[in-house]
């Protein structure tokens, strides 16, 4: 190779490399596929890093989940609810007053649990699970009407053990405003233990402090995340 050829190579190769580096800027990060999909208020899917969103579809289970907010609407994550079910499974307008007498099983003639013993802004009286279900169905959150309390197994499917320090055991990037506390399930009639033993039976909740199930009295004020299946936006 002649001198001019070597000189050409020694000039062109570094210059071309520098020019290529200058012209080719690295791509910005892109989202990776995930089993959760954000769903907007009207039931339309959103890209992973978009928002705001009102529901999350879990592709693994086909369940559509309510997402909590800090908007002071009925979906605010701060609101708590006592466990209450009207007409043995039919969730309709609450008619009972706080302190409605129940029998020893936490059940009156038609209803189960304790009405109006949680804290929220959206009811004239205090709140129970039937209130949130009734209102969420009425507003057709994410285009759905069949909102209900999740089973223990369904709620456990959201437990995320790799949560950051001090955060609830859930993927907070999809489920913000989740509290480190107990979330009601639909399963009730379980025997209460220890200090609650005298109340005989309560309902199951999942604690997002540690991801474990716990039976607590219906009268307790716990958090709620509703779920629906066979939804149009999650199947």
């Amino acid at each position: 190779m002649k001198i001019w050829q070597r000189a050409f190579m020694l000039t062109v190769v570094p210059a071309a490399t520098a020019l290529a580096a200058l012209l080719h800027q690295p791509d910005f990060p892109q989202p990776t596929p995930h089993h959760f999909t954000k769903i907007d208020y009207n039931g339309n899917p959103l890209p992973h890093w978009s928002g705001p969103w009102a529901c999350v579809c879990d592709q693994r289970t086909g369940l559509l989940w309510e997402v909590k907010t800090d908007s002071e609407t009925i979906h605010d994550g701060l609101w708590t609810y006592s466990w209450y079910q009207e007409n043995d499974g039919e969730f309709v307008a609450a008619s009972s007053n706080p302190g409605t007498p129940t029998n020893g099983l936490g059940r009156d003639t038609f209803n189960i649990g304790t009405p109006n013993n949680g804290d929220c802004y959206f009811e004239d009286e205090r709140c129970d699970t039937a209130d949130l279900i009734r209102r969420t169905r009425k507003e057709q959150l994410c285009g759905e009407q069949n909102w209900r309390l999740p089973t223990t197994g369904e709620l456990h499917s959201l437990v995320f053990t790799d949560a950051k320090a001090g955060q609830p055991k859930i993927d907070t990037a999809y489920f913000p405003k989740t509290k480190r506390g107990d979330y009601w399930t639909s399963e009730q009639g379980e025997s209460l233990q220890k200090v609650y033993k005298h109340l005989r039976r309560g309902a199951l909740a999942v604690s997002f402090v540690d991801g474990q199930s716990i039976t607590i009295p219906h009268r307790n004020a716990a958090f709620v995340r509703l779920v629906t299946e066979n939804s149009k936006s999650c199947h």
Binding site: T32, H34, H48, K164, A173, Y174
Partner: peptide, 10 residues
């Protein structure tokens, strides 16, 4: 930390 698909900023 592990990558978290829902978080835009790692």
């Amino acid at each position: 930390d592990q990558a978290r698909p829902g978080e835009r900023r790692y």
